[in-house]
Computed example of a mutant assay.
Amino acid sequence: MPRASLRLWDPLVRLFHASLAGVFVANYFFNEAGGDWHVWLGYYAVAWLGVRLVWGFIGPRSARWADFWPTPTRLRAHVQALLARRPLHRLGHSPLGALVMLAMMLCILGIGVSGWAMQEVDALWGADWPLQIHETLANGLCALVAVHVLAALYESFLVRDNLPLSMVTGRRRALPDERGD
């Protein structure tokens, strides 16, 4: 008998994820650095960070910071489960996934601020440190994105569920204890 599915990711979280993923791919791989599209998509990404920050306090349970904040206890339990190669069944972000998500969000904020500074500081004082910070954070974000994708695939294998698909559909398979079985 197929398992029932639960609503997990609300439309705003899914649009946030798709928007930032799209901006990252466009700006890192396709748009000319400093070009109009690059700049405006950067502002768009930073605006989404602001929306997501607020949504973490007022959105549904799976979007709330309190639901997935990577506390030391949660992180320790997740690392122990990974080392034992046993699944950590949890709806929403895993503790390590939340940590990577927060790191990616901080990188995007830093990229946005340094991108703005490249235009403002460079024009005023001729400094090149904003460009160095911008490039370093963009490359760091690329590495975090790779970790994020690989970890989602690995966790999908462990929990025997398609986690990337749940971000597209907003639904995830219910676990036996979540259905009352």
Rank of each mutant, 00 (worst) to 15 (best):
S114D: 14
W65D: 07
A63C: 03
Q80S: 11
L96M: 05
F68S: 10
T71W: 07
D67Y: 14
H89K: 14
L88H: 13
A77I: 04
V100E: 01
G97L: 12
R74W: 07
C107M: 08
S94L: 05
G115M: 11
P72A: 08
D67A: 12
R86S: 10
H78F: 03
W69S: 02
T71L: 04
P72M: 03
R86L: 07
H89T: 09
L75F: 06
T73C: 04
V113C: 01
G112V: 10
A63H: 01
C107K: 08
L75P: 00
I108E: 14
G97A: 09
A84N: 08
A63R: 04
H78L: 06
L99Q: 05
R90K: 15
R90E: 15
L109R: 00
I108C: 05
G112R: 05
S94R: 07
V100F: 11
R90S: 11
M105R: 02
R76D: 01
V79S: 09
V79I: 15
P70V: 09
S62Q: 12
L75A: 00
A81N: 05
R74L: 09
P60N: 13
R76T: 08
L91Q: 11
P95N: 14
M105A: 13
H78I: 02
D67V: 00
R85V: 10
R64S: 03
P87T: 15
V79G: 01
M101V: 11
R61D: 05
F68D: 03
A103K: 14
A84L: 05
G110Y: 02
